[in-house]
């Protein structure tokens, strides 16, 4: 391995360790998506046939998996941003910058940790859902596609979190943006299909990129029952990731120049 790769690897390991050893860091990201999945599945078990416009999926649980994965990834993004901000507050970031570690390794280390956690989390959610009788229409390739979208989204969400951390230098400020993530989630096709919405609510969900990301994942799980395109989801997450990384690069330079 080159020096840069070893640095990135060591920092990714530290990110994962930081989350794994602090229950308050991983618990919310596991707990909330699972609880919501359980509650919605319990409440709307008959929804696929009972709600007008609901796509003809096999079970609500199948429908709910993609949403849980996506929520976990977004919460993980906030966690990554907050952890990065804590590094800035606590001085670890200074230690990194004053060492021969490249900026790329510093960012990639944190994001690599985020991606690893997102994949573990997604596998856990999917595993639990499978135990409770869910199934993935497209099998293993479908699972891999879901994981790929989840990983790209983890880069985008983590990148946004790190961007905020670099600009504000405050973990509290980064965590303060979490309600915005929640709003993004609620006004999207994450919890219910767009087909069941109308009026302005539908218009907002139509305009929300999160909708297309979750639909692209779900396509692999429920098959053709639902509209949506996996390629669109990959395109959108890759685009968001690119924007977030560009923002991080600029914010990084700005922080060193000392403008903030």
């Amino acid at each position: 391995m080159t020096v840069g790769l070893r640095q990135t690897w060591a920092l990714a390991w530290r990110s994962v360790t930081g989350v794994a050893r602090l229950p308050q860091a991983w618990f919310p990201a596991l707990f909330f998506p699972l609880v919501l999945m359980a509650i919605f599945t319990g409440s709307f078990a008959s929804a696929p046939g009972g709600i007008p416009g609901f796509p003809p999926v096999r079970s609500f649980l199948d429908f709910a998996i993609a949403g849980a994965v996506l929520q976990g990834v977004l919460i993980g993004g906030t966690t990554a941003g907050a952890a990065f901000a804590q590094d800035i507050e606590g001085g670890f970031f200074d230690r990194l910058v004053a060492s021969p570690t490249s900026r790329t390794s510093i960012l990639a280390g944190r994001l690599g940790g985020s991606v690893a956690l997102a994949i573990v989390q997604a596998l856990l959610f999917i595993g639990i859902a499978l135990v409770f009788g869910a199934s993935i229409e497209n099998g293993l390739p479908g699972l891999l596609a879901v994981l790929a979208i989840g990983a790209l989204l983890a880069v985008a969400a983590g990148g946004l979190g790190i961007f905020l951390a670099l600009r504000t230098g405050s973990a509290e400020a980064v965590q303060g943006t979490f309600p915005l993530f929640l709003i993004m989630l609620f006004f999207s096709g994450v919890f219910f299909p767009r087909e069941t919405m109308d009026g302005w609510f539908r218009a907002v969900a139509d305009a929300n990129p999160i909708t297309y990301v979750v639909e692209g994942m779900r396509k692999q799980i429920v098959g053709d029952a639902q509209a949506g395109s996996t390629l669109t989801a990959i395109g959108i997450t890759a685009g968001l990731a690119a924007i977030a990384l560009g923002g991080c690069a600029l914010a990084f330079r700005r922080r060193i120049a000392g403008a903030t």
Binding site: D94, S99, P100
Partner: peptide
Amino acid sequence: AAIGVALQDAAIDPFM
């Protein structure tokens, strides 16, 4: 590459 730096408020992770 040439310097060692120990800045104010020792920046070390409590969980490591």
